[in-house]
C-alpha cells in the first residue's frame, strides 16, 4: 500500500445560502489548494462527490468544475455520493500508481428543494416512493425498533443531542450548538414519533475540499500529515423490510476491514444524522463505550448532504494534525437507515 496523507482541508459555513453551488465551492476549493502548498496544476487528480437530484438537473455536477478551474485540462471523476466516497476513489487512484496527489471536493445545496421529497426518491421506486415517506419518518421506524431492542427511552436519544450540541459549541461551522438540557428537549412535540426535532439533522448548504498526497510529498507539504491507514466501504440490502434495521452489518464489516480495532482509537467522527443512529453505529462498529464520538458535533448538528461525510474525515484529520489525538475513525453513511457505510482510519505522523 502506498502511504497517503491528508495535507489540507477546508469547509464553508453550513448556513442556508443565496450563492449557487459553484459560488459556494470556489473559495473552499481555493482555500484547500492554497493550504496544501501545491499549485492546482501540480495536483494529479480531481474527484468530487455531489448529487444531481438536489439540483434537479442531469450532469449538474459538471458545473462544479468551474470552481476548480478546468484549464489546463484536469483528470477528473465524480461520484453521485458523499465526498468521502470521492476520497475513496482518489485514494484508489493513488494506489494504482497513476497519480501522487489529488484534490477531493463535495458540495450540497438542499435549501431550494423539498429535501424530504428528494430523499424519498432514493427509496424503492415501485413499492415505496409513491407513498412519499419523508426521511425523518423512515428514520423514526428504525428508531422505534432500536429503542425496543436495546431497551432505550426517548431520554437516551435526547442525551445524544445534548452532548452533540455541547461539542459543536467550539465549531464555527455548526448550525445547531450550545447548552441544552434533556427535559427541555423532551418537552417539545414529536416531529415523527418517536423522533423530535433534536433527534433529526440540522440541514444546511455548503462545500468541503481536501488535498491528499503520497508519503514524502505529504511530509514536505505540511508539518504533520495525517495518514490514511485503512479505508473500506460496504453496503446492505436496500429494501427496508429485509434487514434488521437495529443493526448496521455493513458498518461493522467496513470497520473491521479498515482495521479500526487493530489499535486504540483516540476519538471517532461518525456520520450519524439521527441521534439513535449514533448509538447503532457505536454498537455495530464495536467501539469502546468511553470513546469520544463527534467532538465536532457531528452530522446531527451540521448536515450538508453529500458533503458531511467528507467533513467528518476532515474534522478528524484537523484534530489529529493539531495534536489533539493520534488515531481516529471517520465514518460516512449513505441511503436510508444506515444502508451503506464507509470507514477510514486516520493516524498522525
Amino acid at each position: 500500500m502506498r502511504e497517503v496523507g491528508i495535507v489540507s482541508f477546508a469547509q464553508s459555513s453550513a448556513l442556508r445560502e443565496r450563492r449557487n453551488e459553484v459560488e459556494i465551492l470556489l473559495p473552499v476549493a481555493k482555500e484547500a489548494v492554497e493550504a496544501s502548498g501545491m499549485k492546482r496544476q501540480e495536483i494529479g487528480f480531481t474527484c468530487s462527490g455531489s448529487s444531481d437530484f438536489l439540483q434537479g438537473q442531469a450532469f449538474a455536477f459538471v458545473m462544479g468544475l468551474d470552481a476548480v478551474g478546468a484549464w489546463p485540462p484536469v483528470v477528473e471523476s465524480h461520484v453521485e455520493m458523499d465526498g468521502a466516497f470521492a476520497l475513496y476513489e482518489a485514494w484508489v487512484k493513488i494506489q494504482t500508481g497513476e497519480v501522487d496527489s489529488a484534490l477531493v471536493y463535495s458540495f450540497g445545496k438542499t435549501s431550494p428543494g423539498d429535501l424530504a421529497e428528494v430523499l424519498a426518491l432514493q427509496l424503492d421506486p415501485y413499492c415505496v416512493t409513491q407513498l412519499w415517506p419523508d426521511a425523518d419518518s423512515v428514520a423514526a421506524l428504525q428508531a422505534r425498533l432500536f429503542m425496543a431492542r436495546a431497551g432505550l427511552e426517548e431520554r437516551d436519544l435526547a442525551e445524544v443531542a445534548v452532548r452533540s450540541r455541547r461539542a459543536a459549541s467550539d465549531n464555527s461551522h455548526a448550525i445547531v450548538k450550545g447548552e441544552s438540557d434533556v427535559e427541555t428537549l423532551l418537552a417539545e412535540p414529536c416531529r415523527s414519533s418517536p423522533l423530535r426535532a433534536h433527534d433529526c439533522p440540522a440541514n444546511g448548504d455548503g462545500a468541503t475540499a481536501m488535498v491528499i498526497a503520497t508519503g514524502d510529498r505529504a511530509r514536505a507539504l505540511c508539518d504533520r500529515p495525517v495518514w490514511i491507514r485503512g479505508f473500506e466501504h460496504r453496503i446492505d440490502a436496500p429494501a427496508l423490510g429485509v434487514r434488521d434495521l437495529t443493526r448496521a452489518p455493513s458498518a461493522q464489516a467496513a470497520a473491521r476491514a479498515a482495521g479500526v480495532h487493530d489499535d486504540k482509537l483516540d476519538f471517532a467522527e461518525l456520520d450519524a444524522p439521527y441521534t439513535h443512529q449514533e448509538l447503532i453505529l457505536r454498537e455495530s462498529m464495536e467501539l469502546p463505550e468511553d470513546l469520544e464520538v463527534n467532538p465536532s458535533g457531528g452530522s446531527l448538528c451540521t448536515r450538508v448532504l453529500f458533503s458531511c461525510g467528507l467533513t467528518r474525515v476532515g474534522e478528524a484529520a484537523s484534530r489529529i494534525a493539531s495534536g489533539a489525538g493520534d488515531r481516529a475513525l471517520a465514518h460516512t453513511t449513505q441511503g436510508h437507515c444506515l444502508q451503506q457505510n464507509l470507514a477510514v482510519v486516520l493516524e498522525g505522523e
Partner: peptide, 26 residues
C-alpha cells in the same frame, strides 16, 4: 405492525391530509 412513526403534520404528497402513521407491516 412491526414499527411505526406517527405523522402529525402530513406533507402534500403523502397519502392523507390528516394525521396518520407510516408503518412496517408483516
Amino acid at each position: 405492525v412491526v414499527s411505526y412513526s406517527w405523522v402529525a403534520e402530513p406533507r402534500s404528497k403523502q397519502p392523507f391530509d390528516h394525521p396518520f402513521a407510516y408503518a412496517l407491516i408483516r
